[in-house]
Simulated assay, not measured.
Amino acid sequence: MINFFRKTRKQLFSENRFTKYLFYAIGEIILVVIGILIALQINNWNNRRVEKEEEKKSYRNIKRQIEDDRKELTDVKAFNNYFSDTYKHANEIIRAKDYTKSDSLALIAMGLSQYSDFNSSGNIYETLVNSGNLELLKNDEITSLIQQLETTYIFANKLETVHWEIIINELSPTLKGVINFDAFKAVKPEKLFEVEMQNFIVESIYLTSAKDSVYSRAIREIDTIVSLIDTELGTAN
Rank of each mutant, 00 (worst) to 15 (best):
G234H: 02
I30P: 03
E190A: 10
E165T: 11
K211S: 08
V178K: 08
I225Y: 01
E54Q: 15
R64M: 12
T208R: 11
I205K: 07
K52Y: 05
I167M: 09
D182Q: 15
R64K: 14
I108M: 10
V33N: 08
K52W: 00
I146S: 05
T151M: 07
I93P: 04
N47P: 01
E51L: 11
E28W: 03
E55V: 07
D182E: 12
V33C: 09
A96D: 07
N46M: 06
N3M: 11
L134K: 14
V50A: 05
A39K: 04
G122W: 00
S84I: 08
F18K: 06
S213K: 10
F5W: 13
N81R: 13
R70I: 01
I36W: 03
T208N: 15
E150C: 00
K20G: 12
Q65G: 01
A218N: 07
M110N: 02
A183Y: 05
A25F: 04
F79E: 12
K56V: 01
L171F: 06
L137F: 03
E170K: 12
S102M: 06
T152W: 02
I93H: 11
R220K: 15
E203L: 14
I66F: 07
E165V: 13
I166E: 09
S209N: 12
Y115G: 11
V202I: 11
N61I: 09
S102C: 04
L31P: 00
Q41V: 07
E53N: 05
L207I: 13
P173D: 02
Y206N: 15
E15Y: 03
Y21D: 02
N81V: 03
I225L: 02
